[in-house]
Simulated assay, not measured.
Amino acid sequence: MCEPRHFRVDYAINPWMDPTRPVDAAKAVAQWTALKQTYERLGHRVDLITPHPALPDMVFAANAATVIDGIVLGARFRAPQRAPEADLYRTWFLTHGYRTVVMPTHTNEAEGDFTWTGDLLLAGTGFRTDPGAHAEAQEVLGVPVVSLHLVDPRYYHLDVALFVLTEATPTTRATIAYYPAAFSPGARRLLRRLYPDAVIATEEDATCLALNAVSDGHNVILPTEATHLAAELLARGYEPHFADISELRKSGGGPKCCTMELRG
């Protein structure tokens, strides 16, 4: 995670961002701190990277790398405003003992568009990550990749349209939640085939970034407004935990955007 010490909205690179709308950086830090403390209270370790004053979106750590089995595939941002973040995160991994750190040749916004299910890497495209980055991820990470086409500009990254509730095991398939209208017809058919028992989110869920959630297989951290999805998850045996992300949402970010998951 990266503290939003320098968080602001100086430019607009997605439909959520409006540079004329006031941003309270101190409130953003407080909300981020509460999210970090929730992870720690639930027993998770949180590693930190130092924020850079010229990079207001560096708080959205999920976009900077994908890590599976200790192999790191870095990011190549589409927006030039965020491009310098990639090298700062690459340096962090190299100085923290990661031996295999590969920087991509294709545009790739990491866990923004790559979601690990335990046996498949679901990979979004349509707005940010190039389709060619999917084959590159498969080659670098050594896992099978399933491409999913996004069609709604509000849900420009996969991680605002879908998240994994429980990862697959050798004997069980993963459980996911997703918002069907964010995907092309073919991607919707594919998701129904792969995950017939998925939690189907509503437009109400999607518009408060409820799909930008983080699950450890039991505890699910999601935005405060996501009461409908929380009720669905509670009925399935999950334990929802709410996070106020009202300031961070002004850049189109939520709990998952602020969280890069380090696997191995």
Score class of each variant (00 low, 15 high):
Cys2Met: 12
Pro4Thr: 12
Pro4Ala: 13
His6Arg: 06
Ala12Thr: 10
Ile13Gln: 13
Ile13Ala: 12
Pro15Ala: 13
Pro15Met: 07
Pro15Glu: 09
Met17Asp: 05
Pro19Trp: 13
Arg21Gln: 13
Ala25Tyr: 00
Lys27Val: 00
Val29Tyr: 06
Val29Gln: 15
Gln31Ile: 07
Gln31Leu: 07
Trp32His: 15
Ala34Asp: 13
Ala34Val: 04
Gln37Cys: 01
Arg41Tyr: 06
Gly43Asp: 04
Arg45Ile: 06
Asp47Arg: 14
Thr50His: 10
His52Phe: 06
His52Leu: 10
Leu55Gln: 05
Pro56Ile: 02
Met58Tyr: 09
Ala62Arg: 04
Ala65Thr: 10
Thr66Glu: 05
Val67Tyr: 01
Val67Phe: 02
Gly70Asp: 12
Val72His: 07
Leu73Asp: 09
Gly74Lys: 08
Arg78Ser: 14
Pro80Phe: 06
Gln81Ser: 07
Ala83Val: 03
Pro84His: 11
Pro84Ala: 05
Pro84Lys: 14
Asp87Ile: 14
Leu88Met: 12
Phe93Asn: 02
Phe93Arg: 12
Val101Gly: 11
Pro104Lys: 09
Thr107Ile: 14
Glu109Phe: 08
Gly112Ile: 01
Asp113Leu: 03
Asp113Glu: 05
Trp116Gln: 10
Gly118Val: 00
Asp119Ser: 11
Leu120Asp: 00
Leu121Asn: 00
Gly124Ser: 02
Gly126His: 11
Gly126Met: 11
Thr129Asn: 04
Asp130Thr: 02
Pro131Lys: 01
Gly132Phe: 06
Gly132Asn: 06
His134Thr: 03
Glu136Val: 12
Ala137Trp: 02
Gln138Ile: 04
Val140Glu: 05
Val140Lys: 03
Val143Phe: 00
Leu148Phe: 03
Asp152Gly: 05
Ala161Gly: 15
Ala161Asn: 13
Leu162Glu: 04
Phe163Cys: 15
Val164Tyr: 00
Val164Thr: 12
Glu167Ala: 13
Tyr179Asp: 06
Leu190Gln: 15
Leu191Gln: 08
Arg192Ser: 13
Arg193Ile: 00
Arg193Leu: 13
Tyr195His: 08
Tyr195Val: 01
Ala198Thr: 05
Val199Trp: 03
Val199Ser: 08
Val199Asn: 01
Ala201Val: 06
Glu203Val: 05
Glu204Gln: 14
Asp205His: 07
Ala206His: 10
Cys208Ile: 13
Leu209Gln: 04
Ala210Ser: 11
Leu211Ile: 07
Val214Ala: 02
Ser215Ala: 03
Gly217Cys: 03
Leu222Ser: 00
Leu222Met: 11
Thr224Asp: 13
Ala226Glu: 08
Thr227Ser: 10
Ala230Leu: 07
Glu232Trp: 01
Glu232Asn: 12
Leu233Phe: 00
Arg236Ala: 08
Pro240Asn: 11
His241Ile: 09
Arg249Lys: 14
Lys250Gly: 00
Gly254Asn: 08
Thr259Pro: 07
Glu261Arg: 15
